[in-house]
Design a protein around this nucleic acid. Structure first.
Length: 974
RNA sequence: GGGCCUGUAGCUCAGUUGGCUAGAGCGCACCACUGAUAAUGGUGAGGUCGACAGUUCAAGUCUGUCCAGGCCCA
């Protein structure tokens, strides 16, 4: 220990004469409790209507930035996925507000749909109420179930919005949009009506994904793919006319084998074989007639080896080959049935084309045999092929997954899953089975019940994506592709979202919008006495108005006459003739039982927001921000209706974020994702928000306990920097006016701050929150903590309390702290306000003054001397030399050193040497006369007892202490 | 199987149109300070840029194949 540190009781103690840091702003944030206090305080704003209202009042008259919240599903506590999503949205709305926009944020919830209905039904069964319901008539029962669903959903919305507020997100939580609100429902039906107006809505029998467990059609978005073991079978379909086949293969009559050849098909769904109506081949492929284990069969040449190897058949002989074209039109015998089936309800179905070889270009050589089993009632490719060649849409499977009476009698009434093995057994017994094996593949499952889904043809409502609209004479797909192309009206953040979305638009089928459940918005369609469907632009609009007034329950409770009271069929050109001429009256109509796909509801939210909240002002919407799964979901399903109804996209920009994965980059398991409440309690919302801000959100985001700890640590770093500045402003009263010498440290740091501030605001505007994080963090760490603050410490502590130099420094600190609070406000909502209040000495009872009602900092306009860049370069070099001296000469404490710095360009002379000394942390700074940078060891020079500097002015003073001139002056001794 | 995306120090990320010994921060190690103190400052060690091949005078950067992972689909 050096002698200077030794205590000397005879010397005066100067510590009390210093202006040491003092503040009530605690080092320990105690976020978990204090954030609650902030929330309470913010809630007092705007006459207790809260912060959101206060912000909206403040923003009145500003330029609008319209952001639209995608509705999360109203079920369960919010989880890590919501954390990122909601924080990012909050960063957007808060930063837009602080950048001078009026940015309303109406939160929404998706309230209808199967998950809630499922949960409610489970509860009803558990509580024994379900049985009672079964005794009621259908509409009454549905209404009762819907009532339960409604109160359940309302409860979930309350739960989630409470948690979102706890996350410190600011939104119109007092008046959110709920998809089950009558006014929202009505606006959805308006969209449906608008699509009807363009002639895009139709009803058809089509194979759709069908959940047996839920007994409903499912949308693409309601599917999830899981691994499943299935039976894969190779089946020989015997040719109807052997000679025709031999002819196709060019085998002369004399050379033909006596037995009949077969066509080998492959399928992974043996249960669909009873519905087989055709076999598809590719015209361009080569097919072989082969003898395998004594049987004659046809398959694609390229697959012969593979198929036979799989079946362990070694006795293989190719007799002849031919092209797929030659096989077209050949007939075969169905292995399970004698005659072509007659679909229920279609006694006149044309079955003449059944059991024929047809052409299809989706036949591949990847799997199977090159001959594709075709069942138009059970697959979309099959359906289209059937449509082309004139096959009936035959589907012998009922909604509950059992066969109807048109199936072979040994299958009727049986579940299709049980049928798989039975069909295989039957085929084996009859000698049609070539080979069967179990195999694993990914297979679509009902996202809710986790049960496998089947393709089943049913009567459903669709939105046509190809048919030209009446208004533009262009299909929705074409319009969607045009608006999302490069240079179109929609922009994407990140840019690759464009390709992703366009790829999906390119391949999407017509949108099946109907579901067969209770908890949803009814499709306002009626069935005519002749069985035809009736729904027009004007009839659905009439029902929409009823729903707005009475809610969608009206559909179930009221009569067609009531629902259509304001509808005049005679003047509706789109209405069926029988209705128009009055031969059928409303009383003859039967209400449809389908409800809308929930995606149609959320996909119509732009209309609800536009019409209900802003009289059409807020359309199109500036920004949609969701996970990248929504390219197919909400984004696309909002785009299509808005194009159909408005002729333009609902949004201008689509921003997507990635998904949470575990620390190894693997999909997050459910159990890991659940612990959000726990995270609040351990880290506080500001730390979690600071973490979200740091993320490269466009990619997958790794989550792990460790990362929150790290976020907590560098949160503290920023907090401490703020605290240090606040602690040096004790007793300071800010002067707005006044200038700074361009060569002063203050001019330098404030110009740096201006640069930071404009970069941060730019980053906010580009949604580059990660950049915001980096910029602010580095500024606190490097520019402030490492450079400026460590340089001005001496003058803050040791200069006379109201010396000009110290006051100027405090002015800078005040501006910096105030500015930092504002830049941080969108991220660290609580901490920034806490610091802001401490800085402005706001009374604890005063809730009105709040950083969240302010703007981003205006430029200080302070001009720094041009020479600062060169000066910093010289100082960096000098510090490096100082560091060498420390290592080689043992000058551990920089205050024991003086610097003589080479200044070849002559930039340093304009600066105050004491400022440069403080920037380097040394006691004395001079410009080197020798042209070399030299470190002087000042250990032998006297040290100031008060400032610990050895600046050359230190001497014994009247009070007995060793003081420098500055310190002697500060304590007032000669 | 297809579309889109990701893979750079232990961790999180930067790396414009290919061009000087690949940069930050965290963490770690060491040092200083003990008047920001359950703080603060400084210094340092860490990378065959997922793998392989190709184009080029030159590749983390372009091309292809493969591996691993994510989202969406079949």
């Amino acid at each position: 220990m050096s002698e200077t540190k030794a205590k000397d009781e005879t010397k005066p103690n100067y510590k009390k004469s210093l202006n040491l840091p003092k503040t009530a702003f605690p080092m320990k944030a105690n976020l978990v409790q204090n954030e609650q206090a902030s929330i309470k305080r913010w809630n007092k704003l705007a006459n207790k209507e809260g912060l959101y209202k206060a912000m909206m009042d403040t923003a009145k008259g500003r330029k609008k930035f319209v952001f639209h919240d995608g509705p999360p599903y109203a079920n369960g506590s919010i989880h890590l996925g919501h954390l990122m999503n909601k924080c990012l949205k909050d960063f957007v709305t808060r930063s837009k507000f602080m950048d001078g926009y009026d940015c309303p944020f109406v939160p929404g919830w998706d309230c209808h749909g199967l998950p809630i209905e499922h949960k409610v039904m489970t509860d009803l069964v558990d509580s024994g109420k379900a049985k009672k319901l079964e005794t009621l008539d259908d509409d009454t029962r549905r209404t009762a179930v819907r009532k339960e669903c409604q109160s359940y959903a309302a409860k979930q919305v309350k739960l989630q919005s409470g948690q979102m507020e706890r996350l410190l997100t600011v939104a119109d939580y007092k008046d959110p949009y709920l998809t089950m609100n009558p006014r929202f429902e009505a606006s959805v039906l308006e969209v449906l009506s608008g699509l009807c107006a363009q002639g895009l809505v139709y009803k058809a029998l089509k194979p759709v994904h069908w959940s047996i467990a839920s007994e409903t059609a499912l949308a693409d978005a309601e599917l999830e793919y899981q691994e499943r073991e299935d039976l894969s079978v190779y089946v020989d379909f015997e040719a109807a006319d052997g000679d025709a086949v031999y002819e196709a293969f060019g085998i002369e009559e004399g050379a033909r084998p006596g037995s009949k050849p077969s066509f080998m098909i492959w399928t992974t769904t043996p249960w669909t074989l009873p519905a087989n109506l055709a076999i598809a081949v590719h015209e361009k492929f080569e097919y072989s007639l082969v003898r395998v284990d004594g049987n004659l069969t046809v398959m694609a040449t390229e697959l012969v080896a593979k198929v036979c190897k799989g079946a362990k058949s070694e006795d293989v002989e190719t007799l002849a080959t031919t092209s797929g074209t030659k096989l077209l039109g050949l007939r075969y015998k169905h292995p399970l049935r004698e005659n072509a089936p007659t679909p229920i309800g279609e006694p006149d179905a044309d079955t003449t084309s059944c059991y024929t070889i047809v052409s299809a270009d989706y036949v591949t050589l990847e799997d199977g045999s090159g001959l594709v089993h075709t069942a138009p009632g059970h697959g979309s490719d099959d359906y289209l092929t059937g449509l082309r060649v004139g096959l009936p849409v035959y589907c012998p499977v009922l909604g509950d997954g059992t066969y109807d009476e048109t199936a072979p009698e040994w299958l009727a009434g049986m579940s299709i899953w049980d049928a798989n093995d039975l069909v295989a057994k039957r085929l084996t017994e009859s000698g049609h089975m070539f080979h069967a094996q179990k195999f694993m593949h990914s297979y679509p499952h009902d996202w809710r019940t986790k049960t496998p889904v089947i393709f089943r043809s049913t009567e459903q409502w669709f939105v046509d994506v190809n048919k030209p609209t009446k208004r533009e004479n262009k299909g929705l797909r074409e319009m969607a592709l045009a608006s999302t192309q490069d240079g179109g009206t929609v922009s994407f953040v990140p840019a690759w979202g464009r390709n992703r979305m366009r790829g999906m638009l390119d391949s999407r089928p017509d949108w099946c919008i109907s579901r067969q459940r209770a908890w949803g918005l009814p499709i306002p369609a009626f069935t005519m006495p002749d069985g035809g469907a009736f729904m027009t632009e004007r009839s659905s609009k009439a029902v929409a108005d009823v729903v707005r007034a009475h809610g969608s329950d009206a559909w179930f409770k009221e009569s067609p006459e009531f629902l259509l009271a304001d509808y005049d069929a005679s003047s509706d050109a789109d209405a069926p003739e029988a209705l128009r001429n009055g031969s059928v009256s409303f009383g003859d109509l039967v209400k449809g039982r389908d409800i809308l796909d929930v995606w149609f509801e959320s996909g119509s939210s732009w209309n609800a927001v536009m019409r209900q909240r802003s009289d059409g002002q807020d359309f199109p919407i500036d920004l949609y921000l969701e996970g990248s799964d929504q390219h197919r979901g909400w984004f696309q399903l909002s785009l299509l209706p808005s194009l159909g109804v408005m002729g333009k996209p609902a949004f201008k920009t689509l921003l997507t974020h990635g998904f949470m994965v575990d620390k190894d980059g693997k999909k997050l398991s459910k159990s890991k994702g659940a612990a959000l409440k726990d995270l609040f309690d351990r880290y506080g919302a500001d730390v979690l928000r600071w973490w979200v801000c740091s993320l490269a959100y466009e990619n997958d985001v790794k989550v792990d306990e460790e990362f929150f700890k790290l976020a907590g640590e560098n949160y503290r770093k920023v907090r401490n920097t703020m605290r240090f500045m606040l602690s040096n402003l004790d007793g300071y009263t800010h002067e707005q006016s006044g200038s700074f010498d361009p060569h002063s440290l203050e001019a330098w740091v404030l110009s740096e701050f201006d640069a930071l501030s404009s970069r941060v605001v730019k980053a906010y505007n580009e949604y580059a929150f990660h950049e915001v994080h980096k910029l602010i963090y580095n500024f606190c760490n490097t520019t402030l903590s490492g450079q400026y603050l460590s340089a001005v410490k001496d003058r803050l502590y040791c200069d006379a309390t109201d010396s000009t130099r110290r006051t100027q420094t405090q002015r800078a600190l005040f501006i910096l702290t105030d500015g930092l609070c504002r830049l941080l406000a969108p991220i660290m909502c609580h901490t920034s306000d806490e610091a802001f209040r401490a800085l402005h000495k706001i009374d604890p009872k005063d809730a009105e003054h709040c950083v969240h009602l302010t703007r981003f900092p205006a430029p200080t306009g302070v001009v720094a001397a041009d020479g600062w860049a060169g000066t910093h370069a010289l100082l960096d070099n000098a510090r490096r030399i100082l560091e060498d001296a420390r290592a080689t000469r043992g000058i551990d404490n920089p205050l024991d050193a003086g610097l003589r710095v080479a200044d070849p360009e002559g930039v340093l002379a304009a600066y105050c040497m004491d400022d440069l000394a403080d920037l380097c942390g040394v006691s004395r700074f001079m410009i080197s006369e020798s042209g070399e940078t030299i470190v002087d060891d000042l250990s032998d020079e006297p040290r100031c007892d008060r400032s610990w500097k050895r600046d050359g002015t230190v001497k014994l003073r009247a009070d007995g202490g060793m003081l420098s001139d500055r310190d002697a002056n500060a304590v007032g001794v000669e």
